[in-house]
Amino acid sequence: MLDYDGKCAFPHGHTYRAEVFLQANSLDSQDLVFDFTELKRRVKIWIDENWDHAFLVNSRDTELIDGLAPASKGRIYQFESSNPSCEVISRELYNVVAKLCGMSPAKVRLWESLDQYAEYDGAGGATG
């Protein structure tokens, strides 16, 4: 993490688990808010193409970006002037789900470990 004083300042990895909470005032013609299978498919494809086995970096971290750029098998996903904290990633996933599904989630919860998570609710509220 850029400008962070601690061991997380060094490139490292996490395995996240995401929960997407959808809500609607009414159900569709099949009595669903959204088909779980379709939600999972869309989100999984997007994550696999953009984040899975990629370096998630702050767009201002030019040293890391320049160092990773020559790697032929490396992928970089840049968060605009933000560190890839669990809070920022949950906010980004919230926005991605809204685009993929055509509806804003009630919230997205992103688990970084068995007992630590951050969530974003779209009202500007990120908690961690």
Rank of each mutant, 00 (worst) to 15 (best):
D35T: 11
D35P: 10
D35K: 11
D35I: 13
D35A: 15
D35G: 12
F36S: 03
F36A: 05
F36D: 08
F36V: 09
T37D: 03
E38T: 11
E38Y: 04
E38I: 14
E38N: 12
L39I: 14
K40H: 10
R41F: 15
R41I: 04
R41G: 03
R42P: 02
R42G: 01
K44S: 15
I45T: 15
I45G: 04
W46Y: 15
I47F: 07
D48W: 00
E49N: 14
N50L: 01
N50I: 01
N50S: 07
W51D: 00
D52R: 00
D52Q: 01
H53G: 02
H53S: 03
F55H: 08
F55R: 02
F55Y: 13
F55W: 14
L56W: 06
L56T: 07
L56R: 03
L56Y: 06
L56P: 09
V57T: 09
N58K: 08
N58D: 13
S59A: 11
R60D: 10
R60A: 04
D61I: 05
T62C: 01
T62R: 06
E63M: 10
E63W: 04
L64T: 11
L64C: 09
L64H: 03
L64I: 10
I65D: 13
I65S: 12
D66Y: 01
D66A: 08
G67T: 08
G67M: 02
L68V: 01
L68G: 01
L68S: 02
A69D: 12
A69E: 11
A69Y: 07
P70D: 03
A71F: 09
A71M: 08
A71H: 08
A71Q: 10
S72P: 10
K73N: 13
I76D: 02
Y77E: 00
Y77Q: 00
Q78G: 07
F79M: 10
F79K: 05
E80R: 04
S81Q: 13
S81R: 12
S82E: 08
S82N: 05
S82C: 05
P84F: 04
S85V: 06
C86E: 12
C86D: 13
C86Y: 04
V88K: 13
V88T: 12
I89W: 05
I89L: 15
I89T: 13
S90F: 07
S90E: 06
S90G: 09
S90C: 08
R91Q: 07
R91K: 12
E92I: 09
E92M: 10
E92Y: 10
L93R: 11
L93D: 05
L93Y: 05
N95D: 08
V97T: 07
A98E: 15
A98D: 06
A98L: 00
L100S: 05
L100P: 03
L100F: 10
C101I: 13
C101T: 14
C101R: 10
G102D: 04
